[in-house]
Amino acid sequence: MPSSSLSLTTIGFDADDTLWQNEQFFRQTEKQFIALLAEHADGTDIEARLLEAEKRNLALYGFGIKGFTLSMIETALEIGGGRVPSAVIGEILAAGRDMLSHPIEILPQVRETLEQLAGAYRLVLITKGDLFDQERKLAQSGLADLFEAVEIVSDKNAATYARIFARHGEGPERSMMVGNSLKSDIVPAIEAGSWGVYVPHDLTWVLEHVEEPTQAPRFRRLERLGQLTDLIERL
């Protein structure tokens, strides 16, 4: 690596939709949910009311499949007005269980990129969501040995990154966060003082959408993760 890159010591990676597929399974389950309630409301209304339930419940249930499943049940009861059969609730629960056991699908160029960087930098997995589910996905991914540390947090903000990069590196100024969510991965990491490298995914949850911080000196955007090594060498 060129001497200009030597100040970077720690690289954090998001997990869902950065290292492996995630959002597509939520979208598929949401379509099933809408079909289950088709006789009670139209699809647009169901989708909107489910999103409102998810917003309300984030503070209670946090991020992840279990909270999503509870929000679907709540929405079904609201829309059905008590007329939703117990069998429908059972199908919603089954859909949630299916999501929790779905095989991991690693995204392209992920393993190769991590293997290139491991050893030269401290790699830290920084993900939010349900503890058991995130641990399951990491174990099944076969990528765990490439990370020196794993942080599963309830939310991601500037204080989160400042704390993690101080614990596992020399602080945010010598660290980088890589992820697909501008709201969770990039903007707060830059606010903490680190580099933020945005790698868009075709599907990103609407609640994770914010404007790209294009004027921030430490913001970078890549079209694919495989470009990360070259980017670091140019810093």
Score class of each variant (00 low, 15 high):
residue 188 P to G: 12
residue 232 I to T: 10
residue 182 L to E: 02
residue 6 L to Q: 14
residue 110 V to C: 09
residue 11 I to C: 04
residue 70 L to Y: 11
residue 70 L to V: 07
residue 142 G to N: 11
residue 209 H to Y: 02
residue 43 G to Q: 04
residue 15 A to V: 08
residue 45 D to H: 14
residue 29 T to E: 09
residue 193 G to M: 09
residue 81 G to H: 03
residue 134 Q to F: 10
residue 37 L to Y: 08
residue 101 S to M: 11
residue 142 G to S: 12
residue 160 T to M: 07
residue 197 V to Q: 01
residue 35 A to F: 11
residue 43 G to K: 13
residue 229 T to P: 09
residue 96 G to M: 05
residue 162 A to F: 04
residue 227 Q to P: 00
residue 4 S to V: 13
residue 216 A to K: 01
residue 5 S to L: 12
residue 74 E to W: 05
residue 141 S to R: 08
residue 173 E to N: 05
residue 92 I to L: 10
residue 112 E to Q: 15
residue 21 Q to A: 15
residue 20 W to R: 07
residue 156 K to V: 00
residue 48 A to M: 05
residue 21 Q to C: 11
residue 27 R to I: 13
residue 169 G to R: 06
residue 213 P to E: 06
residue 153 V to K: 09
residue 143 L to Y: 11
residue 217 P to W: 06
residue 201 H to Y: 12
residue 120 A to T: 14
residue 23 E to T: 07
residue 46 I to V: 15
residue 28 Q to T: 15
residue 142 G to H: 14
residue 53 A to Q: 14
residue 82 G to S: 03
residue 167 R to P: 00
residue 181 S to W: 03
residue 205 W to T: 03
residue 81 G to Q: 09
residue 230 D to P: 00
residue 23 E to H: 06
residue 195 W to K: 04
residue 46 I to N: 07
residue 5 S to M: 15
residue 100 L to V: 07
